[in-house]
Design a protein around this nucleic acid. Structure first.
Length: 905
RNA sequence: GCAGAGGUAGCGAAGCGGUCAAACGUGUAAGGCUAAGGACCUUAUGGCUUAGGCCUUCGAGGGUUCAAAUCCCUCCCUCUGCACCA
């Protein structure tokens, strides 16, 4: 066996493609365009096999579409927007050992490292270079002329993003408002998940503040369940704690002194005025804003002054804690029930009985009651205008009602404890003057829903997820004050944040190489209006100078396909769709998306830590590109896929066999048999199968037939004695064609060795000739194989070397009955119905219908069966090393169509 | 908690009402070929079976059907996202 150097072959073909510029498409109005892309990655180290997985999936499709005659554009850019790179540069300056170690491992020299110190630009450049070279080593069919980076490091791109934001603003889709964030009070910055030593995933939760009044004093009770106000019996305060009067918008609020620091981050202009003793408060009465009732103020230890305002409204019939303390206080007032739950009239009492009167028990009971009432409760007649509403729909109406009474306000608490890496306890801060993209806009969502409903989405399950995401999608803060990025055009203090500047940049690919040659001064919003909308200034100023940019956009857009892993579905991909429907006309809305799962190796996800050990570089050293590309076929759909490196053997073994076969083509001749017809029939069947599997991104299924299936058919052909040179030539040419998107280099090599002159990369995808498919022949070959299995089985059972094997095929009448049943099973597979339809009294029929699980469904033919078996006598005799006799029309009882009687002596 | 997806033989992964003891790949075992190892070839790989057969399986438990890995219900477990984070 010849030894093949796969790496050498890969490099050879890669450089040929580059030289022939097959990945650098030019605009050609006679050719349909196909624009495919993968989200721009944020560079931070080397690419790992997880990246390889996603990009290879894209590359396969790009090559597939190229072969199908499309003019394919597959570009790649890099995303530098955001904080991490700035952080890295800062940490290099501070000589953070972990960071220095990281770069050393990456092979960065000390002098280079010096340059990174406090210089994000240098870091960014470095990362972009490593990313690009990783991509190139991966053999991706990317058009690098279109490469661009984001942020003001690329001022041309920034101009584009600013145009986008001016556009959104002019459409009324940008607003200014306040926004709660988790906040580190020590470092005075937002506290993202990555910055926390404790409390990942915790977020601000909105509490409604209901303003009860007592004279000119406001008692702001914070609650998660404002709708229970109709049943408020009293106000609780903690009479062992300090209370203060603070000024809020000219009102005098009573709050626990403990809560003032927290509230001051949330309520602008809050001012502490005075102390007020709990004793004074206990002598006051408060007015319930929704019904004017006067209710007392009571002291209770249950009030935690760390939560909310330290002022709590008491609703005994709907809150276990309130019920328990209310009873203890011995008040004469009769508590009102305002929510009905079918089948549980005393839900609070029942819950306390069930969970106990301890602190923990009351907590459990509270959870239980809240959940039950929220999901199944209905506001009853005590609830005024809200009567009859379901509790889960009551949020807005109750807020509106409170607002109308001047009794509404709000605040936030964390859903759990958060601790910053610096050690400080996280709090909620409400940031003022934030810029938002109004993703909550109903009309905008309707438009986007239309897009989601009509676009191609693979796998189909993802569509539902997009539609559901649309339901809860809310406004998104679009700018912040730190990190790299593009300044907001109308307020340059703010930098547009990473998920907002990367929503329509795919359009920028279509012009990237051209626009970056235009002097910055000539670029204004008018230019982009011209490129993307064809708007000119009346004197055709833009058209005269920039028509090629407009042409590029019009030719390549829209995005035909965007591929990514599932974690981007509900954020990035959603924003991508939303922004397209806002900014572009329907003809430029995206056409397709593919969402894939995660790659795992040894059941571990390729996160950053694991990824560092399984870099693309290492993988390529060990296996080479084509073999490594098996990864992309590891699974289908959105499930995570496990990849076992050992499985690459399957590839090289078979490829070697094919290469050897091609080397030794001269041993084959001109003689054709029924086996050749079979081979070509199978080939045509597989072409259609493989094509539809690739189209649907079920790559695993695709190579299962195009690679392994074809290989196995080829082996079978040889085993059955197939020796025709032109059949083999034709079959292998189709084999390399169908497999080229998956294993581009080696297929290109085999194709050339087969004597085909054209580059596979630019030749046509194999097409099916349906005329050559012969169902009956395929079924009969299967009969032959099954019969061989049976014979082997019997020989094993009788433990004796056969001297002679006699194979008796069933007679024509049996075939007739068999085929009648096979046709009938297409209508119904119910044995009783088949019998009724056929109306025949026959032992053969009884036998066929005996096992309802094994009904005949294939059509068979006595003559074909005869031909197949007779032509295979040589093969059978070789296999069993004895005389084999085939006879037809036998009276043998056991012989059935497709299952001849076997006699071994 | 909310939303979506999923749990199939040692492993990975197809199948999504009847051709299912379940494709394909890989692993394991025995034999062949080799000076030897690798590669390659043959066979076995749920259980039972001296003539091609039978029995029990597709997270657990129920149900629908002549027929369920496939449809419905309940439960258990896993993955993804939940927004200032790229």
């Amino acid at each position: 066996m010849v030894d093949y150097n796969f790496r050498e072959i890969e490099e050879k073909w890669h450089s040929i493609w580059r030289k022939e510029r097959v990945f650098e498409p030019e605009i050609d109005q006679n050719k349909k365009s196909f624009f495919i892309n993968v989200p721009i990655p944020y560079p931070s180290g080397s690419l790992h096999l997880g990246h390889f997985y996603t990009w290879t999936r894209a590359d396969i499709y790009a090559r597939f579409m190229r072969m199908r005659g499309f003019n394919v554009l597959f570009p790649q850019g890099f995303h530098l927007t955001g904080g991490p790179i700035v952080g890295v540069a800062k940490r290099v300056k501070e000589k953070d050992p972990e960071t220095l170690e990281f770069f050393k491992k990456q092979g960065v020299s000390d002098s280079e490292l010096e340059k990174f110190s406090d210089n994000p630009y240098e870091v960014a450049t470095y990362f972009c270079d490593t990313f690009r070279s990783d991509f190139e080593n991966m053999g991706m069919s990317i058009d690098w002329r279109k490469l661009f980076i984001t942020t003001s490091l690329n001022p041309h791109f920034s101009k584009f993003v600013q145009w986008q934001f001016n556009k959104l603003r002019s459409l009324g889709l940008i607003t200014e408002g306040r926004h709660p964030v988790v906040w580190c009070p020590k470092e005075n910055t937002p506290l993202g998940d990555h910055d926390r030593s404790e409390g990942e995933g915790e977020s601000p939760q909105k509490f409604t503040i209901i303003k009860f009044r007592s004279g000119d004093i406001v008692l702001p009770a914070a609650t998660l369940r404002p709708e229970t106000i109709f049943g408020a019996t009293n106000i609780w305060i903690n009479d062992s704690k300090q209370y203060s009067i603070v000024e809020v918008n000219g009102e005098r609020w009573v709050v626990a002194s403990d809560s003032i620091a927290k509230l001051s981050l949330q309520i602008p202009g809050i001012k502490r005025m005075d102390n007020i003793s709990p004793k004074t408060l206990l002598n006051m009465e408060a007015i319930n804003p929704v019904n004017g009732e006067k209710i007392p103020i009571l002291g209770a230890g249950l009030v935690d002054t760390e939560i909310g305002t330290g002022v709590v409204m008491s609703v005994p019939m709907h809150a276990p804690f309130d019920f328990y303390y209310f009873k203890k206080a011995g008040l004469k007032i009769k508590p009102k029930k305002v929510i009905d739950v079918v089948g549980d009239d005393n839900i609070v009492e029942d819950a306390i009985k069930r969970f106990g009167e301890t602190d923990g028990g009351l907590k459990e009971a509270t959870r239980f009651v809240y959940k039950k009432e929220f999901n199944t409760g209905v506001m009853n007649s005590m609830a005024g205008d809200l009567s009859g509403l379901q509790v889960k729909d009551v949020d807005e109406p109750i807020s509106d009602l409170l607002r109308s009474k001047g009794a509404y306000s709000e605040m936030y608490e964390l859903t759990g404890k958060v601790v910053c890496r610096c050690g400080a306890k996280g709090v909620v801060s409400v940031l003022e003057k934030q810029w938002f993209i109004r993703y909550s806009d109903k009309e905008w969502k309707t438009k986007t829903r239309k897009l989601i409903e009509r676009m191609n989405i693979y796998p189909e399950d993802a569509r539902l997820q997009f539609l559901n995401t649309l339901e809860w999608l809310g406004d998104k803060g679009a700018a912040r004050k730190g990190g790299l990025g593009t300044p907001l055009p109308w307020d340059s203090e703010w930098i547009i944040e990473p998920l907002s500047d990367s929503t329509i940049y795919m359009a920028y690919y279509t012009i990237a190489d051209k626009i970056e040659k235009i002097p910055l001064e000539s670029i204004d919003d008018g230019l982009f209006d011209f490129i993307f909308y064809g708007k000119d200034d009346g004197k055709e100023t833009y058209k005269k100078k920039f028509s090629s940019l407009r042409e590029g956009f019009m030719y390549w857009y829209p995005v035909d396909l965007r591929l990514t892993a599932k974690e981007l579905l509900q954020n990035h991909m959603m924003f991508f769709l939303m922004n397209h429907t806002a900014i572009f006309g329907e003809e430029h809305w995206p056409r397709g998306m593919e969402i894939n799962g995660w790659l795992t190796v040894g059941k571990e996800k390729l996160s950053k830590s694991k990824g560092a050990t399984l870099t693309v570089k290492k993988g390529l050293e060990m296996w080479g590109i084509d073999q490594l590309r098996m990864i992309a076929t590891a699974g289908n759909g959105m499930d995570d896929v496990e990849w076992d490196p050992v499985s690459v053997n399957a590839f090289s073994q078979r490829i070697r066999f094919v290469l050897d076969t091609v080397e030794g083509m001269n041993i084959f001749g001109d003689e054709k048999t029924i086996i050749d017809r079979y081979l070509i029939s199978k080939m045509n069947r597989i072409i259609a199968q493989a094509t539809s599997e690739v189209e649907a991104f079920r790559y695993g299924n695709a190579i299962s037939s195009s690679f392994f299936g074809m290989y196995n058919e080829f082996r079978l052909y040889l085993e059955l004695g197939g020796r025709n040179k032109s059949s083999i030539q034709r079959f292998l040419s189709v084999f390399v064609g169908l497999n080229h998107p998956f294993f581009p280099h080696i297929t290109e090599e085999i194709n050339r060795r087969l004597g085909n002159k054209e580059l596979l990369e630019s030749s046509a995808w194999p097409s099916q000739n349906i005329e050559e498919i012969d169902d009956v022949l395929e079924n009969e070959i299967e009969s032959l194989i099954n019969t061989v299995e049976d014979i082997k089985n019997i020989i094993k059972l009788i433990k004796k070397k056969p001297e002679k094997i006699q194979i008796s095929l069933a007679g024509k009448d049996k075939f007739d009955i068999y085929n009648t049943v096979a046709r009938e099973t297409k209508n119904s597979k119910n044995v009783i119905e088949i019998r009724r339809a056929i109306k025949l009294n026959s032992k053969v029929l009884d036998k066929l219908l005996k096992n309802p699980d094994k009904l005949p469904v294939k059509v068979l033919d006595i003559n074909v069966e005869m031909e197949v078996f007779e032509e295979s006598v040589g093969y059978l005799e070789k296999t069993f090393d004895c005389k084999v006799k085939v006879e037809r029309n036998s009276e043998e009882d056991k012989a059935m169509p497709g299952k001849p009687a076997i006699k071994i002596v």
